[in-house]
């Protein structure tokens, strides 16, 4: 059977890896190409690069980073951030990325998901969702623009809409848990996983290897994504996978 995937995420700004703690505080944690090779060696199943540079220059740099990474990496990788048009997708995928991830652009213009899926296939299209619990809604609300802008979407409704439009995978980030390091948002992940038939990547909140066991045992998630705990070597991909194996979770 297919294994549960561990995915380190590298936030890239102007060609360097950084990680936002609760989306605000940034710390420099290294060179993307070197880090990619390091994680590949450690047994990472896949990588995600999020380009958080806002400038046009920064985005051109990202295409270069993708080209370099593609030349050295023998595992799949996804690139997100600043992708707003079919041409942006072509640029990133032709530079050698395996998938692109759409967030704000997908909410603003959902037909972009379909355009990409028609051109490259649904397997290339990841829709990233940032969600935050909303008392009034009694559920999780979808946010865009790096978590700054609330939308009208309830998270399961948007997840269903995104997949019906051609998303081949959902990258689900809990804004409540992101940076808190006290575990993934199990309830949110479970809810979303129940309504879609494509793989779900849980993100936000990983602070210890035990959290990965919880998310796989309790939610049905296919993959778990983490950044700072790997970047700052609080634990390693190797250690997490050894622990999962010991707990009976099927990993590579």
């Amino acid at each position: 059977m297919v294994t549960k995937r561990i995915i380190p995420c590298l936030d890239v700004k102007e060609g360097r890896v950084v990680k936002g703690i609760q989306f605000v505080e940034l710390r420099d944690a290294g060179d993307p190409v070197e880090l990619a090779a390091f994680y590949d060696e450690q047994g990472a199943d896949e990588l995600v690069f999020l380009d958080i540079s806002a400038s046009h220059e920064g985005r051109k740099t990202m295409v270069e980073v993708v080209r370099e990474v593609a030349g050295t990496l023998a595992i799949p990788f996804t690139v997100g951030g600043g992708i707003n048009t079919l041409d942006d997708m072509k640029g990133i995928l032709r530079a050698g990325a395996d998938k692109v991830s759409l967030n704000t652009a997908a909410v603003v213009n959902p037909s972009l998901i379909t355009e990409g899926a028609d051109y490259f296939g649904t397997q290339c299209m990841v829709v990233a969702i940032d969600a935050k619990y909303d008392e009034e809604l009694g559920s999780w609300r979808v946010y865009t623009h790096g978590g700054r802008t609330p939308t009208e979407w309830e998270v399961t409704e948007w997840a269903k809409e995104a997949t019906s439009r051609g998303a081949g995978e959902i990258l689900l980030t809990s804004m409540d848990k992101d940076g808190a390091k006290d575990g993934f948002d199990l309830e949110l992940t479970k809810r979303v996983n129940e309504v879609v038939t494509v793989p779900v990547i849980a993100s936000g909140g990983a602070g210890a290897k035990e959290h990965f066991v919880d998310v796989f045992e309790d939610t049905g998630a296919d993959a778990a994504l983490a950044a700072s705990i790997f970047h700052y070597k609080e634990t390693s991909v190797e250690e997490v996978k050894a622990y999962l194996r010991q707990k009976g979770v099927n990993v590579r």
Binding site: R5, D45, Q123, G168, T197, V198, P199
Partner: peptide, 8 residues
């Protein structure tokens, strides 16, 4: 789930 996606 379909596709069959991931390491097997």
């Amino acid at each position: 789930k379909v596709p069959h996606m991931g390491w097997n």
